[in-house]
């Protein structure tokens, strides 16, 4: 496990490929307002999606600021905010143990199975 498991500004737990991370610069804002990651549900029926980040003094302010900043044009029906420091993210250098096992399990995909074309509705 990497020592650095927090999300970085604006990025939450976005998987980032096989690259090796640089050491994170501590985001010690002089004003001591924590960094929040913002997730917005665009409309009913779809997931919340990460849209960006902001600084706020507390959770409630973060939700209000997120509304002003990320939903000025009906972009959302629901907002989640979470402190970036509270996100545990997979680290790019864990690529092998984390994601490699799915690479050789081709039988998990429907295309693995050969079915004659004249079988209907398959």
């Amino acid at each position: 496990m990497s020592t650095d498991v927090t999300a970085e500004g604006g990025h939450g737990a976005v998987p980032t490929g096989p690259e090796v991370p640089v050491e994170a610069t501590p985001a010690a804002s002089r004003r001591d307002w924590p960094l929040y990651e913002v997730f917005v549900r665009g409309k009913r029926g779809i997931n919340h999606v990460h849209v960006g980040s902001l600084h706020a003094a507390d959770d409630e302010m973060a939700v209000h600021a997120a509304r002003d900043l990320y939903t000025r044009r009906n972009e959302g029906v629901s907002i989640w905010v979470v402190q970036a420091a509270d996100i545990t993210a997979s680290s790019p250098d864990e690529k092998d143990p984390m994601f490699a096992p799915s690479g050789d399990k081709v039988y998990r995909h429907p295309t693995f199975y050969e079915i004659p074309e004249n079988v209907p509705h398959m």
Partner: peptide
């Protein structure tokens, strides 16, 4: 401006700075 400062912070920059 806020979207962009947020992007700059992902590179290790500090907004207040």
């Amino acid at each position: 401006g806020m979207y962009l400062y947020s992007a700059a912070e992902t590179l290790g920059a500090d907004r207040a700075d």
